[in-house]
Design a protein around this nucleic acid. Sequence first.
DNA 1: CTGATGATTAGATGATTGTCAAGATAGAAA
DNA 2: TTTCTATCTTGACAATCATCTAATCATCAG
Lengths: 118, 118
Amino acid sequence: MSKQADLPLGCCSPVVREPLSIDEVRRPAQMFKALGDPIRLRLLSMISSHEDGEACVCELTGFTVTGPTISHHLKVLREAGLIEGERRGTWIYYRVLPGPLTTLAALLHAQQPATVMA
Amino acid sequence: MSKQADLPLGCCSPVVREPLSIDEVRRPAQMFKALGDPIRLRLLSMISSHEDGEACVCELTGFTVTGPTISHHLKVLREAGLIEGERRGTWIYYRVLPGPLTTLAALLHAQQPATVMA
DNA sequence: CTGATGATTAGATGATTGTCAAGATAGAAA
DNA sequence: TTTCTATCTTGACAATCATCTAATCATCAG
């Protein structure tokens, strides 16, 4: 406490205004890392923008890489906790988990210096 | 034209509801990648939470790695466009650039499946 | 069961990354 | 100038990563 620099206002919320410890930073860093690849970011975008918020792997096309590589990237996103997959018959459907992304977005807001307020 | 990713607005909203192209995804991916390392995320946190929103390199301590390594990570953050450094006399001060982080946060909101929409 | 299709896993390889030691650069002080 | 301090750059190395091919798993249709 004591450290609450005048809050953001601008947008949102109860912001962490202290340096994050190495432990606090580990999981979000893994998530950001998962987002730090053009193919993976595009996959996420394709899944979340798809009808019903889920997409069959067979619809995740248009890349220059092979199927197994797509599979690998989906696994990275999955292990980071950003998406989940479910098999329904022949096909496997992926959907984006909303919670983690919200957490990351809040973390970024928290990193904003409280500029321009006054 | 046409594709202007209009930003934030309140909270969740005029969301890009189309899959992002590889080109649109390249720069944000570079930024997420820069955030995808525990040391760099902690550095960002230390800088933004520091008084006046800026911190001297000499204050960015408490890591297990050497000076040059810190310098390397600062360079990655700088080249990703997330921070900027300025020399004032003997010391170099870094500060977090608010714009890019806002853009990334908005992008994450955009990736949220539009749950709860009535 | 056999064959066909969708998706993941295993193993190999070239590229990228994180790290350090050593040298270089910028400014302040003597 | 020279010296000292603060920070960055270079060069090298091991570890990690993205990608491929080939093999395997899961499901459905005969």
